[in-house]
Nucleic acid binder design. Structure first.
Lengths: 238, 238
DNA sequence: TGAAAACAATTCATCTGATAAATCAGATAA
DNA sequence: TTATCTGATTTATCAGATGAATTGTTTTCA
Protein backbone atom coordinates (compact mmCIF):
# COMPACT_ATOMS: atom_id res chain seq x y z
CA UNK A 1 0.00 0.00 0.00
CA UNK A 2 0.87 3.65 -0.09
CA UNK A 3 2.81 5.13 2.77
CA UNK A 4 0.18 5.36 5.43
CA UNK A 5 1.34 6.95 8.62
CA UNK A 6 0.54 3.89 10.73
CA UNK A 7 -3.15 4.36 11.33
CA UNK A 8 -4.77 2.46 14.14
CA UNK A 9 -6.21 -1.02 13.76
CA UNK A 10 -9.74 0.28 14.24
CA UNK A 11 -9.28 2.95 11.58
CA UNK A 12 -7.80 0.40 9.24
CA UNK A 13 -10.84 -1.85 9.52
CA UNK A 14 -13.17 1.13 9.27
CA UNK A 15 -11.57 2.42 6.11
CA UNK A 16 -11.42 -0.92 4.35
CA UNK A 17 -15.02 -1.82 5.16
CA UNK A 18 -16.12 1.73 4.36
CA UNK A 19 -14.52 1.57 0.94
CA UNK A 20 -16.06 -1.82 0.28
CA UNK A 21 -19.52 -0.63 1.27
CA UNK A 22 -19.29 2.55 -0.80
CA UNK A 23 -17.89 0.49 -3.64
CA UNK A 24 -21.06 -1.55 -3.69
CA UNK A 25 -19.62 -4.79 -2.36
CA UNK A 26 -22.33 -4.83 0.31
CA UNK A 27 -25.56 -3.45 -1.15
CA UNK A 28 -28.28 -1.94 1.07
CA UNK A 29 -30.20 -4.63 2.90
CA UNK A 30 -27.29 -7.05 2.90
CA UNK A 31 -25.77 -8.16 6.17
CA UNK A 32 -22.17 -7.26 6.79
CA UNK A 33 -19.80 -9.83 8.19
CA UNK A 34 -20.41 -10.77 11.80
CA UNK A 35 -18.06 -9.68 14.58
CA UNK A 36 -16.35 -13.02 14.60
CA UNK A 37 -15.76 -12.94 10.86
CA UNK A 38 -14.37 -9.41 10.96
CA UNK A 39 -11.97 -10.42 13.70
CA UNK A 40 -10.82 -13.40 11.70
CA UNK A 41 -10.45 -11.44 8.47
CA UNK A 42 -8.33 -8.67 9.94
CA UNK A 43 -6.70 -10.66 12.69
CA UNK A 44 -8.01 -8.15 15.19
CA UNK A 45 -9.77 -8.31 18.51
CA UNK A 46 -13.51 -7.91 18.99
CA UNK A 47 -12.94 -4.47 20.50
CA UNK A 48 -11.37 -3.16 17.32
CA UNK A 49 -13.97 -4.81 15.11
CA UNK A 50 -16.85 -3.48 17.18
CA UNK A 51 -15.46 0.06 17.28
CA UNK A 52 -15.09 0.04 13.52
CA UNK A 53 -18.68 -1.11 13.10
CA UNK A 54 -19.82 1.60 15.51
CA UNK A 55 -18.06 4.26 13.43
CA UNK A 56 -19.66 3.01 10.23
CA UNK A 57 -23.02 2.99 11.98
CA UNK A 58 -22.46 6.55 13.15
CA UNK A 59 -22.08 7.61 9.54
CA UNK A 60 -25.42 6.05 8.65
CA UNK A 61 -24.09 3.09 6.70
CA UNK A 62 -25.07 0.31 9.09
CA UNK A 63 -27.66 -0.68 11.62
CA UNK A 64 -26.63 -3.48 13.99
CA UNK A 65 -29.08 -5.47 16.06
CA UNK A 66 -28.40 -8.34 18.39
CA UNK A 67 -28.39 -11.66 16.57
CA UNK A 68 -29.30 -9.99 13.25
CA UNK A 69 -25.84 -8.67 12.62
CA UNK A 70 -25.03 -5.41 10.84
CA UNK A 71 -27.41 -4.61 8.03
CA UNK A 72 -26.52 -2.06 5.37
CA UNK A 73 -29.02 0.78 5.61
CA UNK A 74 -30.81 2.27 2.60
CA UNK A 75 -28.84 4.84 0.63
CA UNK A 76 -31.01 7.69 1.82
CA UNK A 77 -29.58 7.24 5.32
CA UNK A 78 -25.95 7.40 4.27
CA UNK A 79 -24.15 10.58 5.31
CA UNK A 80 -22.74 11.33 1.89
CA UNK A 81 -21.51 14.70 3.12
CA UNK A 82 -19.29 13.13 5.77
CA UNK A 83 -15.60 13.59 4.90
CA UNK A 84 -14.79 9.92 5.38
CA UNK A 85 -17.76 8.74 3.34
CA UNK A 86 -16.79 11.13 0.56
CA UNK A 87 -13.29 9.74 0.69
CA UNK A 88 -14.48 6.14 0.49
CA UNK A 89 -16.78 7.00 -2.37
CA UNK A 90 -13.90 8.60 -4.21
CA UNK A 91 -11.58 5.69 -3.52
CA UNK A 92 -14.01 3.13 -4.84
CA UNK A 93 -14.88 2.80 -8.47
CA UNK A 94 -15.69 6.34 -9.54
CA UNK A 95 -18.82 6.71 -11.61
CA UNK A 96 -18.52 9.38 -14.24
CA UNK A 97 -21.30 11.46 -12.74
CA UNK A 98 -19.41 11.87 -9.49
CA UNK A 99 -17.91 15.26 -10.31
CA UNK A 100 -21.07 16.53 -11.90
CA UNK A 101 -23.14 15.49 -8.92
CA UNK A 102 -20.82 17.37 -6.61
CA UNK A 103 -21.00 20.48 -8.73
CA UNK A 104 -24.78 20.39 -8.87
CA UNK A 105 -24.89 20.51 -5.08
CA UNK A 106 -22.29 23.25 -4.91
CA UNK A 107 -24.34 25.27 -7.36
CA UNK A 108 -27.19 24.93 -4.92
CA UNK A 109 -25.71 26.14 -1.68
CA UNK A 110 -22.63 28.14 -2.58
CA UNK A 111 -24.58 30.88 -4.33
CA UNK A 112 -26.68 31.41 -1.25
CA UNK A 113 -23.54 31.24 0.89
CA UNK A 114 -21.94 34.02 -1.14
CA UNK A 115 -25.08 36.12 -0.79
CA UNK A 116 -25.17 35.57 2.97
CA UNK A 117 -21.47 36.36 3.31
CA UNK A 118 -22.07 39.64 1.51
CA UNK A 119 -25.02 40.62 3.66
CA UNK A 120 -23.36 39.69 6.98
CA UNK A 121 -20.35 41.77 6.01
CA UNK A 122 -18.08 40.68 8.84
CA UNK A 123 -14.69 42.33 8.33
CA UNK A 124 -12.43 39.58 9.65
CA UNK A 125 -14.20 36.79 7.82
CA UNK A 126 -14.07 38.72 4.57
CA UNK A 127 -10.39 39.32 5.17
CA UNK A 128 -9.96 35.54 5.24
CA UNK A 129 -11.62 35.30 1.84
CA UNK A 130 -9.32 37.99 0.49
CA UNK A 131 -6.31 36.19 1.92
CA UNK A 132 -7.33 32.96 0.20
CA UNK A 133 -7.77 34.87 -3.02
CA UNK A 134 -4.22 36.16 -2.79
CA UNK A 135 -3.04 32.61 -2.18
CA UNK A 136 -4.85 31.59 -5.35
CA UNK A 137 -3.13 34.35 -7.26
CA UNK A 138 0.21 33.14 -5.96
CA UNK A 139 -0.67 29.56 -6.84
CA UNK A 140 -1.53 30.58 -10.40
CA UNK A 141 2.09 31.65 -10.81
CA UNK A 142 3.47 28.47 -9.31
CA UNK A 143 3.65 29.50 -5.65
CA UNK A 144 1.58 26.97 -3.75
CA UNK A 145 -1.12 24.40 -4.34
CA UNK A 146 -3.93 25.64 -6.59
CA UNK A 147 -6.40 23.09 -5.24
CA UNK A 148 -5.79 23.97 -1.60
CA UNK A 149 -6.00 27.71 -2.08
CA UNK A 150 -9.14 27.35 -4.18
CA UNK A 151 -10.70 25.21 -1.45
CA UNK A 152 -9.63 27.74 1.16
CA UNK A 153 -11.41 30.48 -0.76
CA UNK A 154 -14.70 28.63 -0.83
CA UNK A 155 -14.40 27.48 2.76
CA UNK A 156 -13.80 31.06 3.81
CA UNK A 157 -17.01 32.05 2.05
CA UNK A 158 -18.90 29.35 3.93
CA UNK A 159 -17.43 30.55 7.22
CA UNK A 160 -18.39 34.14 6.40
CA UNK A 161 -22.07 33.22 6.22
CA UNK A 162 -22.15 33.06 10.01
CA UNK A 163 -24.33 29.99 9.59
CA UNK A 164 -23.05 26.78 11.15
CA UNK A 165 -24.95 24.54 8.79
CA UNK A 166 -22.89 25.64 5.81
CA UNK A 167 -19.63 24.56 7.44
CA UNK A 168 -19.87 20.78 6.91
CA UNK A 169 -20.10 21.34 3.18
CA UNK A 170 -16.45 22.28 2.93
CA UNK A 171 -15.53 18.59 2.71
CA UNK A 172 -17.66 18.31 -0.39
CA UNK A 173 -15.97 21.33 -1.95
CA UNK A 174 -12.57 19.94 -1.17
CA UNK A 175 -13.41 16.62 -2.80
CA UNK A 176 -14.97 18.31 -5.80
CA UNK A 177 -11.93 20.49 -6.40
CA UNK A 178 -9.53 17.59 -6.17
CA UNK A 179 -11.33 16.29 -9.22
CA UNK A 180 -12.44 19.25 -11.24
CA UNK A 181 -9.24 21.28 -11.11
CA UNK A 182 -6.95 18.57 -12.49
CA UNK A 183 -9.62 17.40 -14.93
CA UNK A 184 -10.30 20.79 -16.44
CA UNK A 185 -6.72 21.95 -16.34
CA UNK A 186 -5.57 18.89 -18.22
CA UNK A 187 -7.94 19.73 -21.02
CA UNK A 188 -8.01 23.51 -21.03
CA UNK A 189 -4.61 24.43 -19.65
CA UNK A 190 -4.40 26.84 -16.75
CA UNK A 191 -7.67 27.85 -15.14
CA UNK A 192 -7.27 31.30 -16.65
CA UNK A 193 -10.81 32.45 -16.05
CA UNK A 194 -10.92 31.20 -12.51
CA UNK A 195 -8.96 33.95 -10.88
CA UNK A 196 -11.09 36.62 -12.49
CA UNK A 197 -14.26 34.81 -11.56
CA UNK A 198 -13.15 34.44 -7.95
CA UNK A 199 -12.18 38.08 -7.92
CA UNK A 200 -15.69 39.08 -8.92
CA UNK A 201 -17.13 37.05 -6.08
CA UNK A 202 -14.68 38.62 -3.65
CA UNK A 203 -15.44 42.18 -4.74
CA UNK A 204 -19.18 41.63 -4.56
CA UNK A 205 -18.87 40.29 -1.02
CA UNK A 206 -16.56 43.14 -0.02
CA UNK A 207 -19.14 45.57 -1.39
CA UNK A 208 -21.84 43.90 0.66
CA UNK A 209 -23.86 43.32 -2.50
CA UNK A 210 -25.70 40.04 -1.89
CA UNK A 211 -27.38 39.82 -5.28
CA UNK A 212 -24.14 40.44 -7.15
CA UNK A 213 -22.24 37.94 -4.99
CA UNK A 214 -24.88 35.31 -5.67
CA UNK A 215 -24.71 35.93 -9.40
CA UNK A 216 -20.91 35.95 -9.50
CA UNK A 217 -20.75 32.63 -7.68
CA UNK A 218 -23.42 31.20 -9.90
CA UNK A 219 -21.65 32.28 -13.07
CA UNK A 220 -18.38 30.82 -11.87
CA UNK A 221 -19.76 27.44 -10.88
CA UNK A 222 -21.92 27.21 -13.97
CA UNK A 223 -18.86 27.64 -16.10
CA UNK A 224 -16.95 24.98 -14.21
CA UNK A 225 -19.92 22.65 -14.54
CA UNK A 226 -20.07 23.31 -18.26
CA UNK A 227 -16.33 22.70 -18.55
CA UNK A 228 -16.50 19.44 -16.66
CA UNK A 229 -19.46 18.30 -18.74
CA UNK A 230 -17.44 19.00 -21.86
CA UNK A 231 -14.41 17.29 -20.40
CA UNK A 232 -16.44 14.20 -19.56
CA UNK A 233 -17.78 14.09 -23.10
CA UNK A 234 -14.36 14.66 -24.65
CA UNK A 235 -12.66 11.97 -22.63
CA UNK A 236 -15.55 9.72 -23.55
CA UNK A 237 -15.85 8.25 -20.09
CA UNK A 238 -18.70 5.86 -19.92
CA UNK B 1 -38.79 12.54 28.16
CA UNK B 2 -41.02 10.63 25.78
CA UNK B 3 -41.13 6.86 25.94
CA UNK B 4 -37.64 5.78 25.03
CA UNK B 5 -37.41 2.14 24.12
CA UNK B 6 -34.49 1.29 26.39
CA UNK B 7 -31.52 2.39 24.34
CA UNK B 8 -28.19 0.71 24.83
CA UNK B 9 -25.60 1.82 27.34
CA UNK B 10 -23.29 3.03 24.59
CA UNK B 11 -26.06 5.07 22.96
CA UNK B 12 -27.02 6.48 26.32
CA UNK B 13 -23.49 7.76 26.94
CA UNK B 14 -23.21 9.00 23.37
CA UNK B 15 -26.44 10.98 23.57
CA UNK B 16 -25.74 12.55 26.92
CA UNK B 17 -22.18 13.59 26.01
CA UNK B 18 -23.38 14.72 22.58
CA UNK B 19 -26.02 16.97 24.11
CA UNK B 20 -23.50 18.37 26.55
CA UNK B 21 -20.99 19.13 23.82
CA UNK B 22 -23.58 20.73 21.56
CA UNK B 23 -24.90 22.61 24.55
CA UNK B 24 -21.53 24.24 24.99
CA UNK B 25 -20.50 22.47 28.18
CA UNK B 26 -17.27 21.43 26.48
CA UNK B 27 -16.07 24.23 24.19
CA UNK B 28 -13.76 23.53 21.24
CA UNK B 29 -10.21 22.93 22.41
CA UNK B 30 -11.29 21.62 25.78
CA UNK B 31 -10.50 18.06 26.75
CA UNK B 32 -13.41 15.77 27.37
CA UNK B 33 -13.39 13.48 30.37
CA UNK B 34 -10.90 10.62 30.20
CA UNK B 35 -12.00 7.05 29.65
CA UNK B 36 -11.72 6.29 33.32
CA UNK B 37 -13.84 9.28 34.27
CA UNK B 38 -16.55 8.42 31.74
CA UNK B 39 -16.72 4.88 33.09
CA UNK B 40 -17.01 6.20 36.63
CA UNK B 41 -19.64 8.78 35.75
CA UNK B 42 -21.96 6.39 33.91
CA UNK B 43 -21.06 3.25 35.79
CA UNK B 44 -20.16 1.62 32.51
CA UNK B 45 -17.33 -0.47 31.21
CA UNK B 46 -14.44 0.88 29.16
CA UNK B 47 -15.84 -0.79 26.07
CA UNK B 48 -19.07 1.20 26.25
CA UNK B 49 -17.25 4.43 27.03
CA UNK B 50 -14.78 3.95 24.21
CA UNK B 51 -17.47 3.10 21.69
CA UNK B 52 -19.39 6.22 22.64
CA UNK B 53 -16.28 8.33 22.17
CA UNK B 54 -15.65 6.68 18.80
CA UNK B 55 -19.16 7.59 17.66
CA UNK B 56 -18.73 11.20 18.74
CA UNK B 57 -15.38 11.28 16.93
CA UNK B 58 -17.01 9.86 13.81
CA UNK B 59 -19.36 12.83 13.80
CA UNK B 60 -16.45 15.25 13.90
CA UNK B 61 -16.89 16.42 17.48
CA UNK B 62 -13.79 14.87 19.02
CA UNK B 63 -10.24 13.93 18.26
CA UNK B 64 -8.65 11.48 20.67
CA UNK B 65 -4.94 10.93 20.90
CA UNK B 66 -3.03 8.67 23.22
CA UNK B 67 -2.20 10.36 26.47
CA UNK B 68 -3.80 13.65 25.37
CA UNK B 69 -7.36 12.48 25.82
CA UNK B 70 -10.31 13.51 23.69
CA UNK B 71 -10.12 17.10 22.53
CA UNK B 72 -13.17 18.93 21.24
CA UNK B 73 -12.50 19.80 17.62
CA UNK B 74 -13.14 23.27 16.16
CA UNK B 75 -16.71 23.98 15.13
CA UNK B 76 -15.87 23.87 11.46
CA UNK B 77 -15.24 20.13 11.76
CA UNK B 78 -18.57 19.32 13.39
CA UNK B 79 -21.01 17.45 11.17
CA UNK B 80 -23.92 19.75 11.81
CA UNK B 81 -25.93 17.99 9.13
CA UNK B 82 -25.73 14.65 10.91
CA UNK B 83 -29.16 13.64 12.26
CA UNK B 84 -27.82 12.94 15.74
CA UNK B 85 -25.87 16.19 15.90
CA UNK B 86 -28.95 18.11 14.81
CA UNK B 87 -30.93 16.34 17.50
CA UNK B 88 -28.39 17.20 20.19
CA UNK B 89 -28.28 20.79 19.04
CA UNK B 90 -32.04 20.99 19.22
CA UNK B 91 -32.14 19.33 22.63
CA UNK B 92 -29.65 21.72 24.13
CA UNK B 93 -30.44 25.33 24.80
CA UNK B 94 -31.90 26.56 21.52
CA UNK B 95 -30.47 29.82 20.29
CA UNK B 96 -33.06 32.04 18.67
CA UNK B 97 -31.36 31.97 15.28
CA UNK B 98 -31.63 28.20 15.07
CA UNK B 99 -34.75 28.11 12.89
CA UNK B 100 -33.59 30.99 10.72
CA UNK B 101 -30.21 29.36 10.15
CA UNK B 102 -31.91 26.17 9.03
CA UNK B 103 -34.16 28.05 6.64
CA UNK B 104 -31.25 29.95 5.13
CA UNK B 105 -29.59 26.67 4.21
CA UNK B 106 -32.82 25.21 2.88
CA UNK B 107 -33.26 28.27 0.73
CA UNK B 108 -29.88 27.49 -0.68
CA UNK B 109 -30.17 23.89 -1.78
CA UNK B 110 -33.88 23.17 -2.02
CA UNK B 111 -34.42 25.56 -4.91
CA UNK B 112 -31.74 23.82 -6.90
CA UNK B 113 -33.14 20.45 -5.84
CA UNK B 114 -36.55 21.38 -7.19
CA UNK B 115 -34.99 22.50 -10.45
CA UNK B 116 -33.05 19.27 -10.78
CA UNK B 117 -36.11 17.19 -9.94
CA UNK B 118 -37.98 18.95 -12.72
CA UNK B 119 -35.26 18.42 -15.28
CA UNK B 120 -34.69 14.74 -14.42
CA UNK B 121 -38.42 14.12 -14.77
CA UNK B 122 -38.43 10.57 -13.40
CA UNK B 123 -42.03 9.36 -13.29
CA UNK B 124 -41.88 7.21 -10.15
CA UNK B 125 -39.97 9.74 -8.10
CA UNK B 126 -42.39 12.50 -9.09
CA UNK B 127 -45.25 10.20 -8.15
CA UNK B 128 -43.76 10.06 -4.66
CA UNK B 129 -43.84 13.86 -4.48
CA UNK B 130 -47.47 13.87 -5.59
CA UNK B 131 -48.29 11.26 -2.99
CA UNK B 132 -46.71 13.33 -0.25
CA UNK B 133 -48.68 16.33 -1.48
CA UNK B 134 -51.91 14.38 -1.14
CA UNK B 135 -50.88 13.42 2.37
CA UNK B 136 -50.37 17.11 3.14
CA UNK B 137 -53.81 17.89 1.81
CA UNK B 138 -55.24 15.19 4.04
CA UNK B 139 -53.25 16.50 6.99
CA UNK B 140 -54.61 20.00 6.45
CA UNK B 141 -58.09 18.62 7.15
CA UNK B 142 -57.00 16.74 10.22
CA UNK B 143 -56.04 13.42 8.67
CA UNK B 144 -52.43 12.77 9.61
CA UNK B 145 -49.40 14.66 10.85
CA UNK B 146 -48.80 17.94 9.00
CA UNK B 147 -45.10 17.99 9.90
CA UNK B 148 -44.42 14.46 8.68
CA UNK B 149 -46.26 14.87 5.39
CA UNK B 150 -44.56 18.22 4.79
CA UNK B 151 -41.18 16.61 5.44
CA UNK B 152 -42.07 13.71 3.17
CA UNK B 153 -42.83 16.17 0.37
CA UNK B 154 -39.46 17.85 0.61
CA UNK B 155 -37.59 14.58 1.03
CA UNK B 156 -39.30 13.27 -2.09
CA UNK B 157 -38.05 16.30 -3.98
CA UNK B 158 -34.51 15.62 -2.79
CA UNK B 159 -34.79 11.99 -3.89
CA UNK B 160 -36.11 13.05 -7.28
CA UNK B 161 -32.92 15.00 -8.01
CA UNK B 162 -31.16 11.70 -8.67
CA UNK B 163 -28.21 13.18 -6.83
CA UNK B 164 -27.00 11.30 -3.77
CA UNK B 165 -25.50 14.35 -2.15
CA UNK B 166 -28.87 15.95 -1.61
CA UNK B 167 -30.18 13.00 0.39
CA UNK B 168 -28.44 13.70 3.72
CA UNK B 169 -30.12 17.09 3.89
CA UNK B 170 -33.48 15.55 4.69
CA UNK B 171 -32.53 15.42 8.36
CA UNK B 172 -32.10 19.18 8.31
CA UNK B 173 -35.49 19.66 6.70
CA UNK B 174 -37.12 17.41 9.24
CA UNK B 175 -35.59 19.34 12.10
CA UNK B 176 -36.49 22.66 10.56
CA UNK B 177 -40.12 21.71 10.06
CA UNK B 178 -40.50 20.45 13.59
CA UNK B 179 -39.81 24.02 14.59
CA UNK B 180 -41.23 26.25 11.90
CA UNK B 181 -44.60 24.56 11.45
CA UNK B 182 -45.67 24.79 15.09
CA UNK B 183 -44.11 28.23 15.48
CA UNK B 184 -45.82 29.82 12.51
CA UNK B 185 -49.11 27.99 13.00
CA UNK B 186 -49.34 29.19 16.56
CA UNK B 187 -49.12 32.77 15.36
CA UNK B 188 -50.87 32.71 12.02
CA UNK B 189 -53.31 29.83 12.40
CA UNK B 190 -53.40 27.15 9.77
CA UNK B 191 -50.65 27.22 7.14
CA UNK B 192 -53.25 28.31 4.59
CA UNK B 193 -50.79 29.35 1.94
CA UNK B 194 -48.58 26.30 2.30
CA UNK B 195 -50.72 23.83 0.41
CA UNK B 196 -51.01 26.18 -2.54
CA UNK B 197 -47.31 26.90 -2.51
CA UNK B 198 -46.45 23.22 -2.42
CA UNK B 199 -48.92 22.61 -5.22
CA UNK B 200 -47.12 25.14 -7.39
CA UNK B 201 -43.82 23.37 -6.80
CA UNK B 202 -45.39 20.02 -7.61
CA UNK B 203 -46.97 21.26 -10.85
CA UNK B 204 -43.75 22.86 -12.02
CA UNK B 205 -41.84 19.65 -11.42
CA UNK B 206 -44.53 17.60 -13.12
CA UNK B 207 -44.29 19.94 -16.09
CA UNK B 208 -40.53 19.46 -16.20
CA UNK B 209 -40.07 23.22 -15.90
CA UNK B 210 -36.83 23.65 -13.95
CA UNK B 211 -36.90 27.45 -13.80
CA UNK B 212 -40.49 27.55 -12.58
CA UNK B 213 -39.82 24.81 -10.01
CA UNK B 214 -36.87 26.76 -8.68
CA UNK B 215 -38.89 29.92 -8.38
CA UNK B 216 -41.87 28.21 -6.78
CA UNK B 217 -39.64 26.62 -4.14
CA UNK B 218 -37.85 29.91 -3.58
CA UNK B 219 -41.09 31.82 -3.13
CA UNK B 220 -42.40 29.26 -0.69
CA UNK B 221 -39.30 29.15 1.50
CA UNK B 222 -38.86 32.90 1.39
CA UNK B 223 -42.34 33.32 2.74
CA UNK B 224 -41.74 30.81 5.51
CA UNK B 225 -38.51 32.60 6.37
CA UNK B 226 -40.30 35.93 6.46
CA UNK B 227 -43.00 34.44 8.66
CA UNK B 228 -40.52 32.95 11.07
CA UNK B 229 -38.59 36.21 11.24
CA UNK B 230 -41.84 37.98 12.09
CA UNK B 231 -42.71 35.32 14.62
CA UNK B 232 -39.34 35.64 16.30
CA UNK B 233 -39.79 39.38 16.53
CA UNK B 234 -43.35 39.11 17.79
CA UNK B 235 -42.52 36.64 20.50
CA UNK B 236 -39.68 38.91 21.45
CA UNK B 237 -37.16 36.13 21.82
CA UNK B 238 -33.78 37.54 22.53
C1' DT C 1 23.75 28.02 32.33
C1' DG C 2 21.54 26.09 28.38
C1' DA C 3 20.16 22.57 25.34
C1' DA C 4 19.68 18.01 23.95
C1' DA C 5 18.90 13.32 25.12
C1' DA C 6 17.35 9.64 28.10
C1' DC C 7 13.83 8.22 31.21
C1' DA C 8 9.59 7.39 33.82
C1' DA C 9 4.71 7.95 34.40
C1' DT C 10 0.26 8.39 32.59
C1' DT C 11 -3.24 7.56 29.32
C1' DC C 12 -5.13 5.62 25.24
C1' DA C 13 -5.06 1.26 22.11
C1' DT C 14 -5.57 -3.45 21.82
C1' DC C 15 -6.20 -8.10 23.20
C1' DT C 16 -8.30 -11.90 25.87
C1' DG C 17 -11.96 -14.18 28.05
C1' DA C 18 -16.37 -14.33 30.33
C1' DT C 19 -21.33 -13.16 31.28
C1' DA C 20 -25.87 -10.96 30.02
C1' DA C 21 -29.40 -9.83 26.76
C1' DA C 22 -31.77 -10.22 22.49
C1' DT C 23 -33.37 -12.61 18.58
C1' DC C 24 -34.15 -16.29 15.27
C1' DA C 25 -35.37 -21.10 14.22
C1' DG C 26 -37.21 -25.24 15.35
C1' DA C 27 -40.20 -27.94 18.32
C1' DT C 28 -44.44 -28.40 20.63
C1' DA C 29 -49.27 -27.87 21.66
C1' DA C 30 -53.98 -26.07 20.74
C1' DT D 1 -52.61 -23.78 10.65
C1' DT D 2 -51.59 -20.80 14.42
C1' DA D 3 -49.62 -19.68 18.68
C1' DT D 4 -46.35 -20.42 22.25
C1' DC D 5 -42.21 -22.23 24.19
C1' DT D 6 -37.50 -23.46 24.19
C1' DG D 7 -32.69 -23.69 22.73
C1' DA D 8 -28.92 -21.97 20.08
C1' DT D 9 -26.52 -18.19 18.13
C1' DT D 10 -24.99 -13.53 18.02
C1' DT D 11 -24.45 -9.04 19.70
C1' DA D 12 -23.90 -6.10 24.13
C1' DT D 13 -21.48 -5.44 28.10
C1' DC D 14 -18.18 -6.18 31.53
C1' DA D 15 -13.51 -7.08 33.67
C1' DG D 16 -8.62 -7.29 33.62
C1' DA D 17 -4.05 -7.35 31.42
C1' DT D 18 -0.58 -5.94 28.16
C1' DG D 19 1.34 -2.85 24.52
C1' DA D 20 2.17 1.76 22.56
C1' DA D 21 2.47 6.65 22.48
C1' DT D 22 3.06 11.03 24.53
C1' DT D 23 4.09 14.28 28.16
C1' DG D 24 6.99 16.07 31.65
C1' DT D 25 11.01 15.42 34.23
C1' DT D 26 15.59 14.33 34.87
C1' DT D 27 20.05 13.70 33.45
C1' DT D 28 24.00 14.58 30.75
C1' DC D 29 27.04 17.16 28.00
C1' DA D 30 28.78 21.39 25.87
Amino acid sequence: MAGNQTSSVTDEITNILGREILGGLFPPGATLLGEEEICARFGASRSAAREAVKILSAKGLLLTRPRRGSRIRPLKDWNFLDPSVLGWLRASATPRHFIIELLEVRLGFECEAAALAASRNKADEIAAIREAFEAMRAASSGQGDPVLSDAAFHEAVLAATGNRFFLPLSALIHTALQYSVPTTNALFGHPVGDLDAHGKVLRAIEAGDAARARKAMHDMLSEVLARVRTAVELTGVT
